[in-house]
């Protein structure tokens, strides 16, 4: 199978299908080459799981996609946590920008 191009929308669709995600925000931080993404994933499937387990769930759901890109960041929240953080931050809950410079990841060409 030819490798399909990974886009913000393909990631969103995959997470909605495979993780029952109720809200997904995807930000391309590659500067256009489609190789680096940071995401906020809200899914009830994360309930009762620690951070490591949540990430493993996402990694498994997006195994093929992640193997094709260089940089992948995920923030995994349950719907309740998401509501709480939105309330606490005045609606400013979004993907993590850690590891980036001005929203672009550096050094991914390695």
């Amino acid at each position: 199978m030819a490798e399909a191009t990974i886009t913000e929308s393909s990631i969103k669709t995959a997470l909605a299908d495979r993780l029952k995600a109720v809200h997904v925000e995807v930000q391309d931080m590659s500067g256009g080459c489609g190789q680096a993404f940071t995401t906020l994933i809200v899914s009830p499937e994360f309930a009762g799981k620690n951070s490591l387990k949540r990430h493993r769930l996402v990694n498994a759901a997006l195994k093929d996609e992640i193997s094709q890109i260089h940089a992948w960041t995920a923030k995994c929240q349950t719907p309740e946590e998401w509501e709480k953080e939105k309330a606490a931050t005045g609606g400013h809950d979004g993907p993590s920008m850690e590891g980036t410079t001005d929203g672009k990841v550096v050094g991914v060409d390695q």
Binding site: A71, G99, V105, V106, G107
Partner: peptide, 15 residues
């Protein structure tokens, strides 16, 4: 990591 602690080669390794 990618790179060395002194010169990380990626933002995530640096962080």
């Amino acid at each position: 990591m990618k790179g060395t602690p002194e010169t990380p080669q990626c933002g995530f390794s640096r962080a």
